[in-house]
Simulated assay, not measured.
Amino acid sequence: MTGGPGAVLVLGEALIDLVPVGGDGGVRAARFGGAPANVAVGLGRLGTPVVFAGGLGGDGFARTIEERLRDSGADLTLCARSELPTALAVAEPGAGGTGYHFHLQDTATFRLPDLSAQAGLFGAVYVGGLAAVVEPAASAVRATAAAAAEHSLLVVDPNVRRDRTLGDDDGAAALRELCSLAHVVKASDEDMERLWPGADPEESCRKLAAGGRLVVLTRGAGGSTAYTAAEPPVSVPATPVDIVDTIGAGDAFAAGLLSRMGASGSFAAAPGPQEVRDMLSYASRVAASVCARAGTEPSAP
């Protein structure tokens, strides 16, 4: 296991996205996915030491997932393994973004290890997404996140998903609880609207930041803004790009943000305004590298 103050532990799901081919909903390609897995691959591609802790099954999809993670440089020592199948996410791209229908139950994907005892061995711990709201993974995520909040830098990316399989509130209560524990929250404007309905996303970010957090709000083509308790908000425009595919762009942004934080030593210290601007700019360029082509693997600016 590759731990240490410059390493990131990513706890969450690695699954398969079934994505329409050429706009034809009747023909779908199986694509590596899961927000935490995308972040782990992104961190590896950007040169940040990363340990991915997910649930890997015994089918062909699981072997594809493992190969992709290993090729990126992610350490898989802490993954849980079983002979159960891999979870599937059926992607439904539309004018308002990409929606999903999930096939999650009785899969290896959400049999996650409780890593609360190991959380303090890393500079940062990243959690969020489906694993934070789907049991039995959610219990492991909560325990690990609570330990990381005490002994490391806890980074939460809620990645709110809407689907009938997730319960009446789509897991929003669990994600709000994780945000309250976090030192860093990275969320889209849609995430914030779903977590705090009826509230202005920027105001919700300010309230979270007032508790001593770094809160980064992304708005797609509208760029990103960082909020802290002590300084005025810092905004950076989106990097111009000819868009081919936006799936995975938010995960690439998160990987870029974390990679830059680790490189500057900000896992252990509160970044200043100029450092925050540099991190946002770098993350924006990493996200643009994903939007410029099909696939979710970023390249370093």
Rank of each mutant, 00 (worst) to 15 (best):
A145I: 12
K186W: 03
F102W: 02
T165G: 00
G97P: 00
F110A: 08
A187M: 08
R162C: 08
T144R: 03
A174Q: 08
A124G: 13
R162N: 05
S152G: 14
A140V: 12
S188C: 03
A148T: 08
W196C: 09
L115Q: 01
M192L: 15
D189M: 11
C179D: 10
R81G: 09
C79K: 15
E193N: 13
V185R: 10
F102M: 03
L130Y: 02
A89S: 10
A140F: 06
V125D: 03
D189Q: 14
H183I: 07
A138W: 01
G129M: 01
D71S: 15
L166A: 11
D163M: 13
A146C: 11
G99N: 11
D170Q: 11
L175Q: 12
S116A: 14
L121N: 12
P197E: 06
P93N: 12
A87M: 05
E190C: 10
F110K: 01
R81C: 14
S72I: 01
N159H: 04
P136F: 11
C79E: 13
N159A: 09
R176M: 08
P158L: 07
G129P: 01
T107C: 01
S188P: 00
F110V: 06
A74C: 14
V90F: 15
A80N: 14
D191G: 13
A140W: 09
E190G: 04
R142P: 00
L84Y: 01
A149C: 05
R161S: 02
F110R: 06
A148Y: 04
P93T: 13
C79R: 15
R161Y: 01
S180G: 15
N159F: 04
G171S: 09
A132V: 10
L78V: 12
A187W: 03
V155Q: 03
Y100V: 10
L88D: 00
D169R: 10
D163K: 02
V184E: 07
A137Y: 00
T165V: 14
